[in-house]
């Protein structure tokens, strides 16, 4: 049972990771003069969009969405609306946090917000997919014995890695190397993406290695 779950997760993660690569390659084929640095926002939104779509598709197909108590249409719609609202709020939250870390407040606000969108689509969106619009559950998941399934553990790992990547991505910005990727927010978005990919890779491996220690409480 363990192995099938881990294998399923690995393949799901592989699909999501490949979507990131596709989102990089496709614009390069379709658009002339495309480069990750030069048309950074295009790349960013393509990655964010594809990650979002693939995430939703994968989790919907796999059925790892939170159990819904009612199946009425209105309830589903209200959940959808709340999810969208939460996603927007998380974008704003990340924007605020990034500004707190020292991002310019007014100039290049669009870039900062785009970074927030990317971060949200790599962290909040997965939370929404797995746990639904339930902040209590989110807070619960991110504690030591809060994970209740392998998917929760993978959520912990990918989210942590994405945020850590964005944090590390800010390090080279003040250096005077004059590289194109030091421009705000390229290094941070690259860091986020790399962190996310690392998390996707790391989660099945880590869970596989620690499968003995992992004990999940029933929901």
């Amino acid at each position: 049972m363990w192995d099938t779950e881990i294998r399923g997760m690995a393949s799901a993660h592989a699909i999501i990771a490949s979507s990131v690569f596709m989102a990089t390659i496709l614009p390069a084929i379709l658009l002339e003069k495309f480069s990750v640095y030069g048309m950074h926002l295009v790349w960013l939104y393509s990655v964010a969009g594809s990650v979002a779509v693939v995430n939703i598709a994968v989790f919907w197909l796999l059925g790892i969405s939170p159990p819904t108590k009612r199946h009425t249409l209105s309830y589903k719609i209200s959940r959808l609306v709340r999810s969208c609202l939460y996603f927007l709020l998380s974008c704003l939250f990340f924007h605020t946090v990034v500004v707190l870390y020292g991002a310019p407040l007014l100039e290049s606000a669009l870039e900062t917000f785009s970074l927030a969108v990317l971060l949200s689509s790599m962290t909040t969106l997965r939370c929404l997919c797995m746990l639904g619009p339930n902040v209590q559950a989110w807070i619960r998941v991110f504690s030591r014995d809060g994970a209740m399934s392998v998917w929760d553990t993978s959520l912990q790992i990918t989210t942590g890695c994405s945020v850590l990547g964005a944090w590390l991505g800010a390090f080279p910005i003040p250096l005077d190397w004059d590289r194109p990727w030091q421009v705000w927010p390229i290094s941070c978005t690259l860091g986020t993406t790399v962190g996310f990919l690392t998390g996707l890779l790391l989660a099945p491996v880590w869970i596989h290695c620690h499968r003995k220690q992992l004990i999940y409480k029933s929901k």
Binding site: V97, Y101, G102, I139, R140, F142, S143, R144, A170, P174
Partner: peptide, 28 residues
Amino acid sequence: AEGRVVTFLLCSLGLYVPLRLNWDGHLL
């Protein structure tokens, strides 16, 4: 860029504190 670097580090550690508390299960 010291001023910004210090603010960045301060912000990092400051935000880490509640995350860690939550991780240890003290916030709920």
